[in-house]
């Protein structure tokens, strides 16, 4: 079991109740769509996975470890087992494609040789060969998101978290990104993807968790 939520409730200091008694389990190797309207609690759910937010009540286990009881200095190690892909890519504008990807590995203390080998590997995998020395501003949105994905998988995470990864992209580009995420999942990485795009989810045949007003309203394998 990779992720376990037990009666998780989150109330922000401003009084907003983002999650209300959420319980669910995610197995290793699953591909999960997290759906729901804006304000349903998707972002809060995702932030709790990498412990940017803590629950007000309830327990969360990642790889059987409670992130609520986790000490502050253990948090970096939790996060190293995850990769995060953002809707707005969050690339460093003054670094090239290679540097953006290498940055993630440098930060966790990998050696230069290992970094070079893995960078080449993930650039190949996301299909960015030839763009190594481009800056993010010189790339299309789809290419930038591929850099974001490459950066997220470079540290070989158990769990890939994608928050609206195709939210800023057109349909064709988005489908390309989805193919890439399915590929990553096929190699064994668990993927949790928050999205609004029903058309991407419809025929995927993956598990879909729908949140509304902070509660799980459906947890199915296809969309009705």
């Amino acid at each position: 079991m990779l992720v376990q939520f037990y009666n998780v409730t989150k109330v922000y200091t401003n009084g907003v109740k983002a999650l209300n008694d959420v319980s669910l389990k995610i197995e290793r190797g699953e591909f999960i769509f997290l759906m729901g309207p804006s304000g349903a609690g998707k972002s809060t759910f995702i932030k709790m996975l990498f412990r940017e937010e803590l629950p007000t009540q309830g327990q969360i286990f990642i790889s059987s470890r409670s992130i609520v009881r986790m000490k502050r200095r253990e948090v970096p190690h939790l996060r190293r087992s995850m990769g995060v892909v953002f809707q707005d890519f969050k690339l460093l504008e003054n670094k090239t494609v290679v540097e953006n990807i290498a940055f993630a590995m440098k930060v966790v203390g990998l050696g230069n040789r290992e970094i070079a080998a893995r960078t080449a590997e993930v650039i190949n995998m996301v299909g960015l060969k030839g763009k190594e020395d481009s800056f993010p501003g010189q790339l299309s949105g789809g290419e930038q998101q591929r850099v974001g994905i490459a950066r997220a998988i470079a540290n070989r995470p158990l769990l890939l978290i994608a928050d609206e990864p195709s939210g800023n992209l057109d349909m064709v580009t988005a489908e390309g990104i989805m193919e890439l995420l399915y590929n990553i999942n096929r190699k064994g990485t668990t993927v949790i993807m928050a999205t609004h795009a029903r058309e991407l989810v419809r025929d995927a045949g993956k598990r879909i968790i729908t949140l509304e007003a902070g509660q799980v309203v459906s947890d199915l394998c296809t969309l009705e």
Partner: peptide
């Protein structure tokens, strides 16, 4: 933004 990113990737505070 860069600091936030480093934190999410799993950089230690000292790094």
């Amino acid at each position: 933004k860069e600091i936030y990113l480093m934190k999410l990737i799993g950089a230690t505070d000292w790094f």
